[in-house]
Design a protein around this nucleic acid. Structure first.
Length: 283
DNA sequence: AACTTTCGCAACCGCACGGAT
DNA sequence: TATCCGTGCGGTTGCGAAAGT
């Protein structure tokens, strides 16, 4: 009943993308801009369905994607936003513009869920010990000095070096040469989620020819970090997180510990949720 | 060293939604 | 209004790598 999924069509390839396929896709999008995915396999000769092309682009090839380890602060953001929004990964990702929803979802499922569960069980088993594990985690997540643990002496925000998949590195090498072209082009405002850098691609300039998507450009991460300061929205939520955490730590000094999420949810519903919900996500 | 188990993540699947016709 | 089409989203799967025995 109904149409078969597009990827079930005869001749449609599945499985991991090869560097060569990536190059074809990237070069096509360089010329035409993202969108109209249905046309991509037809026009490029890629034996992939349109959906697969879109996914490959948005989750992997798109400029501005940060890969590799999540910082403690990113972890904290994800945990807060997940508690607020639930498994709305796309919404959560909009507050972490360098991360894809898929990446966040995977990180949540493989790391954070376990971590929270562990912390919760530790907190429950250490009732009366003022929830040390919770404090340690929160202080790490928010780069603050813990009020209960002096071993963590402050900011933990330094970012680990990113790890990139070998395929992306291969593409980088393969793309070297033909991508050294033209003068810089202004970034499209609609594409601010793509503003951040993919170090592998180096600096590339190109203009879309369809006139719809405007132009876009690959920047190196260090350039981006200098040229595009953190957005107001993100600053807002970060400062909110900061003050929230301070409040939470103050409360903790006077009250027996609740579980991590219970406490946070209570805090939120008490006073702060509206403030966050009014924030417009970054698109 | 060989085998098994666990983990992490890229990719896929199916559904929902909105715009066009 | 109904249908089609393109796209976005969240859940799940499968495979390679790492860890354990």
């Amino acid at each position: 009943m109904g149409r078969p999924p597009c990827c079930d069509k005869v001749g449609i390839k599945k499985g991991p993308w090869t560097p060569e396929e990536d190059i074809v896709l990237v070069s096509y999008i360089q010329q035409h801009g993202p969108g109209n995915w249905r046309a991509v396999p037809t026009n490029t000769g890629l034996l992939r369905c349109s959906k697969s092309c879109r996914l490959r682009w948005t989750n992997y090839l798109r400029p501005g994607i940060k890969r590799g380890n999540f910082t403690p602060h990113e972890e904290g953001m994800i945990i807060h936003l997940q508690a607020l929004l639930g498994n709305k990964w796309a919404a959560i990702a909009s507050y972490l513009p360098q991360r894809t929803d898929n990446d966040i979802k995977n990180y949540w499922n493989t790391h954070l869920k376990k971590k929270i569960k562990k912390l919760q069980s530790e907190s429950e088993s250490q009732m009366g010990s003022n929830s040390k594990a919770y404090h340690q985690f929160m202080s790490k997540s928010y780069g603050e000095k813990s009020t209960t643990d002096n071993s963590n002496s402050g900011l933990v925000l330094s970012e680990n070096s990113s790890v990139y998949a070998s395929s992306a590195e291969n593409i980088s090498r393969l793309l070297e040469g033909w991508m050294r072209s033209s003068s810089p082009i202004k970034l499209d405002n609609n594409n601010m989620s793509s503003v951040n850098a993919n170090r592998d691609f180096g600096k590339i300039s190109t203009e879309c020819t369809n006139g719809n998507s405007g132009s876009f450009e690959y920047y190196r991460a260090d350039q981006i970090e200098n040229e595009f300061p953190i957005s107001n929205e993100l600053e807002c939520i970060l400062s909110f997180d900061h003050s929230l955490n301070e409040q939470k730590l103050r409360m903790d000094n006077n009250n027996p510990p609740l579980s991590f999420l219970e406490k946070w949810m209570l805090d939120e519903s008490a006073s702060q949720v509206e403030g966050v919900m009014e924030l417009s996500p970054i698109y």
